[in-house]
Design a protein around this nucleic acid. Structure first.
Lengths: 100, 100
DNA sequence: TTATGTACTATAAAAAAAGTATGTACTATA
DNA sequence: TATAGTACATACTTTTTTTATAGTACATAA
């Protein structure tokens, strides 16, 4: 899935994990633990398919955690990790640079 | 061209200008002023079309400058701007976060 | 007069990403 | 027995992005 990047290049490494339309935006909503359905409500433009794929990718890369409450109907919550937080800190810097 | 992003969202603002496969990589090669052909040689995987489009986008956003030597055969050089440099500074931070 | 070099354009084809719609599991509740 | 509720899967279509390929302009040199 996604573009084939050489991860020894820092730029490629970043794009591989955070590039694309949704990962950064989804991650930005996870400062507080949230159910799948709640995230979807906060980002109505995203399709369920993309949200699931994005969340899966984020958890695989340890940028978010997935907590399954093992109940029925299902209850699952996602939350950004410290690693994810650190990565997100670069965004305001970039934004600031771009508006300079 | 590209995805329609609301620029009032910092994440969208960043993605609009630097998202996608090539902008960051191209920008990283422009610390020293370089001819179009030289950039292409440094990034052989990129197609000419994409390189031109990317360079145009970067110059439009003041992340790079384009200097035309008005000669024939053409001689044009591109170079990263201060603004571009500032934006690029966020990359190592992200990279560092991702490998933590 | 013909070939060369260089930035750039234009078109079509291929590949990748995203969107849409529908279906599944499973328990509780009506 | 039928329905609701929730996270997630899967097939299919459409859209977007990228690649590949073939030009164009124009001065200079062979």
């Amino acid at each position: 899935m996604g573009i084939e990047y050489k991860t020894d290049c820092p730029i490629r490494a970043v794009l591989k994990v955070l590039g694309g339309k949704w990962p950064l935006l989804v991650l930005s909503k996870l400062e507080e633990s949230k159910r799948f359905s709640a995230i979807k409500r906060e980002i109505p433009e995203i399709s369920e398919k993309m949200l699931i794929e994005t969340l899966k990718q984020l958890t695989e890369n340890k940028l978010a955690t997935r907590k399954d409450f093992k109940s029925i109907p299902p209850h699952v919550e996602y939350k950004i990790t410290d690693k994810g937080m650190k990565a997100m800190e670069a965004i305001p810097l970039m934004r600031k640079a771009l508006s300079s």
